[in-house]
């Protein structure tokens, strides 16, 4: 087994006297897709922010492979309308890039032809793809996504995750993501980590979905959806009752929010 790209060793984080993360141990190895799920306030975002160095651990440490290239897609990025910002200029922060380079990553992220648009004029789906494009600039070995599909509808989120999967195949990068879209994400992951201050359980999506800790947090409903998704369905119209009946659609929603 190869050395991990990044590892949290007994990582604990306290914020304002409250323990957010307690002795978390996670290793991410090359090429795997790992999803962190957990209820609100379970420390998912804190965990990711600790990994990128935005939060100093109160105990434990983060180990990175030497020269690790990380692409980070934040949870939300509210660009104030007071700041004019073209997509091309945004991609060139902090290091200026060539036009060809900008076009290349935009194509790769599934957002071709957006380079000259204003960031504030983009739709939610376009915006997330531009964020993804920026994360792809330095040929990352590890992609970190913090609820990257927040604000996207179900087909939009599904299309976004398929794009992530394609990027992973092209670059061979590992992906660590946080998501609330349990249905879609569980199916797209090699490994799922169920976090609630500490790691409740982890393993393949099937194992986690069966784990009593996971069921205690999320109920049993998602397992049915997972089985459904495994049968190649992603076009759920209603996330709340998507598992009681069967929608047999093929994946035709790729360009839904172009």
């Amino acid at each position: 087994m190869s050395a991990p790209l990044i590892a949290a060793r007994d990582l604990s984080v306290r914020l304002g006297g409250r323990v957010i993360l307690d002795a978390v141990n996670v290793e991410i190895t090359a090429g795997e897709i790992v999803t962190v799920v957990g209820p609100n306030g379970s420390g998912k975002s804190t965990f990711l922010r600790a990994l990128i160095g935005a939060i100093t651990p109160s105990a434990g440490r983060i180990e990175r492979a030497p020269g690790l290239r990380v692409g980070y897609v934040p949870q939300k990025l509210a660009i104030d309308r007071s700041m004019p910002m073209t997509v091309r200029r945004f991609l060139g922060l902090p290091h200026r890039i060539s036009t060809a380079e900008a076009d290349r990553v935009l194509d790769h992220a599934g957002a071709p032809g957006l380079a000259d648009r204003q960031m504030t004029d983009l739709s939610g789906g376009q915006f997330q793809r531009v964020l993804l494009a920026r994360a792809l600039l330095e040929q990352p070995q590890l992609l970190l996504l913090d609820e990257a599909t927040q604000g996207l509808d179900q087909p939009g989120a599904a299309a976004f995750y398929r794009r992530i999967e394609e990027v992973r195949q092209d670059l061979g990068c590992a992906v660590l993501m946080i998501s609330h879209d349990l249905h879609v994400v569980m199916a797209a992951s090699d490994r799922v980590i169920c976090l609630n201050g500490h790691i409740c359980c982890q393993g393949t999506p099937e194992i986690v979905a069966d784990a009593p800790e996971y069921r205690a947090l999320f109920g049993t409903g998602t397992k049915g959806a997972l089985a459904l998704y495994r049968h190649q369905h992603s076009h759920e119209h209603d996330p709340d009752d998507g598992h009681s009946h069967d929608h047999s659609h093929d994946h035709s929603d790729e360009g839904a929010e172009g």
Partner: peptide, 19 residues
């Protein structure tokens, strides 16, 4: 300038870029 801009946009993005 670049660091100031990125920090203004999003502090976490800046951190991830080593700023």
């Amino acid at each position: 300038w670049p660091g100031l801009l990125l920090s203004t946009l999003n502090p976490d993005l800046a951190r991830a870029s080593g700023i």
